[in-house]
Simulated scan of single mutants.
Amino acid sequence: MLFKTPSLAIVVPCYNEKDAFPYCLDGLTTVLSTLISKGKIRDNSYVLFVDDGSKDNTWEQIKSASRKSTFVQGLKLSRNRGHQIALMAGLSNANTDVTVSIDADLQDDISCIEKMIDKYSEGFEIVYGVRDNRDSDSAFKRTTANKFYSLMNRLGVNQVPNHADFRLLGRTALTALNKFKEQNVYLRGLIPLLGYKSTNVYYSRDERVAGESKYPLKKMVALALEGITSLTITPLRMIAMVGIVTCLISSIAAIYAVIEKLQGDTVAGWTSVMIAIFFLGGVQMLSLGIIGEYIGKIYMESKNRPKFFIEEKIGSKNEIQ
């Protein structure tokens, strides 16, 4: 099959990235120019910056860049919806043969974009950017990340270890992804479900070029819970197993208590009774919390609300207001 030179959209979610934006703009437009000059992508390729309700002047910088360069387009969401929704907004509005998603902090190696295009030309519909080491992370983050990937694998979530949201999607894969309509989006787990031919490119992650991380511990934990509860029901099955085991232990304990009663060996056991009450109460509250999380997601999904609203588009012929 003859390979057609593809058009490329680089989708970049932005939230309060006023400090990092100039570096990101310069780096990605240089990548586009280089790939176009090499004949690897078409000259109608562009960078699509998605402003996720920033409170600083990120959107003003995007608008200014779009007026100066045909390589730049912008999408402004009506309010902050979170990284995953902002990324979906950008991907669903990219009208190209190939999309590459990358964060504005440029911790991901932009030189890998050319490698991704090369892999696409070899017939791969999905190309994951995967870190070959985590040396730039703190010991705490490195340990918790490894534990997280191990936990997700045990729970049955199929995702690529050490891969975040730096990836290439061909048009076929992107069309399939846009058919997922759920509100609770965890792209790292959804993409492998598409099943198209995929491969990895490896790189070392750098320090953030400017600004502060938008993923503190609280948001990382929230993202992990989103991934678990959106893609697997294993926690519910674990609750059922805990219930079965507890019933078995309780049955054995009840038989033992009856035997002791018949033998007249019973004594007052306030401590053991209180321990049992607290233990079972804790198990019940934890179980209700997990079940409640799933019920909450069902409630939100049943409303079928739009995931985002676009306030403004700029660049090329897409400018609206």
Rank of each mutant, 00 (worst) to 15 (best):
Val242Lys: 06
Leu174Glu: 11
Val201Pro: 07
Asn178Glu: 09
Asp206His: 14
Leu168Glu: 09
Tyr196Leu: 12
Met220Ser: 09
Ile228Gly: 01
Val201Leu: 05
Val185Leu: 13
Val209Gly: 06
Met241Gln: 15
Asn178Thr: 06
Leu177Asp: 01
Lys214Ala: 10
Val221Met: 09
Ser198Gly: 03
Phe180Asp: 13
Glu212Asn: 05
Met241Asn: 13
Lys197Glu: 15
Gly227Trp: 06
Ala173Pro: 10
Tyr203Phe: 15
Ile239Thr: 07
Val209Leu: 07
Val242Trp: 06
Leu193Phe: 01
Leu177Pro: 02
Val201Ser: 04
Lys219Ile: 00
Asn178Ser: 02
Leu225Tyr: 01
Cys247Phe: 13
Val221Ile: 13
Ala222Gly: 01
Lys179His: 02
Lys179Cys: 01
Lys214Gln: 05
Tyr196Ile: 08
Tyr196Arg: 11
Asn184Leu: 11
Arg208Pro: 08
Leu225Ser: 06
Asn178Cys: 08
Val221Leu: 09
Tyr203Gln: 09
Leu190Cys: 02
Gln183Lys: 13
Tyr215Cys: 04
Arg205Ile: 10
Glu226His: 03
Gly189Pro: 06
Leu193Ala: 01
Val242Met: 07
Ser230Pro: 02
Thr234Gly: 08
Pro216Ala: 02
Gly227Leu: 00
Glu212Gly: 06
Arg171Ser: 11
Cys247Asn: 15
Ile191Glu: 05
Leu190His: 03
Lys181Phe: 00
Thr234Met: 08
Glu212Ser: 11
Arg171Phe: 00
Thr246Met: 14
Leu231Arg: 04
Ala240Arg: 15
Leu190Ile: 10
Ile244Lys: 14
Thr199Gln: 12
Asp206Leu: 12
Ala173Tyr: 08
Lys219Phe: 08
Lys214Met: 06
Leu225Trp: 12
Ile239Phe: 05
Met220Cys: 11
Val221Gln: 07
Pro235Ser: 05
Leu231Val: 01
Leu169Gln: 03
Tyr196Lys: 10
Leu217Tyr: 07
Leu193Pro: 00
Glu207Met: 12
Gly189Glu: 03
Asn200Phe: 07
Ala222Gln: 08
Ala210Arg: 03
Asp206Val: 05
Arg171Trp: 00
Ser230Arg: 02
Gly170Trp: 00
Ser213Lys: 02
Leu194Pro: 09
Glu226Lys: 08
Leu194Val: 09
Pro235Cys: 07
Leu217Asp: 08
Leu236Phe: 10
Lys197Ser: 15
Lys218Arg: 10
Lys214Phe: 04
Thr232Arg: 04
Ile191Val: 15
Leu217Phe: 11
Ser198Tyr: 04
Lys214Leu: 04
Pro235Leu: 03
Leu177Gln: 01
Met238Asp: 12
Lys197Asp: 12
Lys218Met: 05
Ser213Ile: 01
Glu207Phe: 15
Lys181Leu: 10
Asn184Phe: 14
Asn184Glu: 11
Pro235Phe: 07
Val201Thr: 12
Gln183Arg: 14
Pro216Cys: 02
Met238Pro: 10
Tyr202Lys: 11
Tyr186Ala: 15
Met238Gln: 13
Val185Arg: 09
Leu169Cys: 10
Gly243His: 13
Gly170Lys: 00
Ser198Met: 00
Val245Glu: 14
Thr232Cys: 04
Asn200Val: 05
Ala240Pro: 14
Leu236Lys: 05
Arg208Asn: 12
